[in-house]
């Protein structure tokens, strides 16, 4: 089979015609509307720009929203964390609030790309890129995050459970819409969570497997009062292990039930065999290990270490 031309011939040029820097959200939306689908929103640009190198993807204009005001906050409002989508991974990873109230997200953000990338790349961009192995998306999915999307028809809110559609495809259309908010419940007492990742080196590498785990413990009955497990890349999108979560919910905490849930999670996912990121069999086995380890560690962080 013949290899395509653009895999064999590369160029240093990133190509697009216009670079627009709106001052306000309305202006940004108007710019996008004007290009009628041929423009692309960028924030940090660390995913989009390399795609445009050597014309592997084509856009007429980039609309750089990174200077829009009030879209990079990291704050708590009641029981919720409100995260501006323009917050960079570096800031989120370093935020004491996120480390205390959304530890898996802080850990996930600390793994994205390199320090150089994390200084520029945004958490909103991580979601919009729609990659199944995205280190911020996987924990946000476990945190039951909801995103606010502004578009020509106004604003709408979408939970991440409805957000990821396919590899590189989400509920947001980056040629017409802009993410304006991310929110999720802050972790509180009797809750714990962590993020794990498996990779072939210790930095600057995409994960073969990423897993975010959250638990809430009923301290009276010593049961699982809440569980969230999200994984990537084991499917075209980040994935929640709903069956395994249900299995644990309300159950007394114990090693056996955790092992059973891990087994279930492993059998529920079917990562493809990848020459670069591992076979299906291996990654399924790793799902078992990670779910078991993640639940155990999350319980300890919730103050209920397994004996």
């Amino acid at each position: 089979m013949a290899q395509p031309f653009n895999k064999l011939h590369w160029s240093r040029f990133v190509e697009y015609d216009q670079y627009l820097v709106p001052d306000s959200l309305d202006q940004a939306l108007a710019m996008l509307a004007e290009f009628n689908g041929s423009a692309r929103v960028i924030a940090g640009g660390t995913d989009v720009v390399p795609e445009l190198r050597g014309r592997r993807a084509k856009v007429a204009a980039l609309v750089d929203i990174s200077r829009l005001p009030d879209m990079d906050g990291i704050e708590q409002e009641g029981g919720f964390i409100r995260l501006g989508p323009l917050a960079t991974h570096a800031r989120v990873a370093a935020s004491q609030l996120i480390r205390d109230k959304a530890a898996p997200l802080a850990e996930g953000c600390s793994w994205v790309g390199s320090p150089q990338i994390r200084n520029v790349a945004t958490v909103g961009g991580n979601l919009v890129s729609g990659q199944p192995a995205a280190d911020a998306s996987v924990p946000l999915f476990a945190l039951d995050a909801e995103v606010t999307i502004a578009g020509p028809q106004g604003e709408r809110r979408t939970p991440l459970s409805d957000f990821f559609l396919d590899v590189g495809k989400t509920a947001i259309d980056p040629s017409r819409e802009i993410m304006t908010g991310i929110s999720f419940p802050a972790l509180g007492e009797n809750q714990g969570g962590c993020y794990q990742r498996l990779a072939q080196r210790k930095a600057l590498v995409l994960p073969m497997l990423a897993c975010a785990t959250l638990v809430k413990v009923d301290p009276q009955n010593k049961t699982f009062a809440g569980v969230a497990l999200s994984l990537g890349p084991v499917a075209p999108t980040p994935m929640r292990e709903r069956v395994a979560e249900q299995m644990l919910l309300g159950q007394p905490i114990g090693k056996e039930i955790i092992a059973k849930a891990a087994e279930s999670a492993s059998s529920q996912c079917s990562p493809r065999d990848s020459l670069l990121r591992g076979s299906c069999d291996y990654r399924q086995a790793m799902v078992r290990v990670f779910v078991e380890r993640g639940l155990t560690r999350s319980l300890a962080l919730a103050g209920h270490a397994l004996s």
Binding site: V14, I42, G45, V49, L62, P115, Q116
Partner: peptide
Amino acid sequence: PVNSCILPAL
């Protein structure tokens, strides 16, 4: 520190 190769000059 940023990667200047993928950062639009603007």
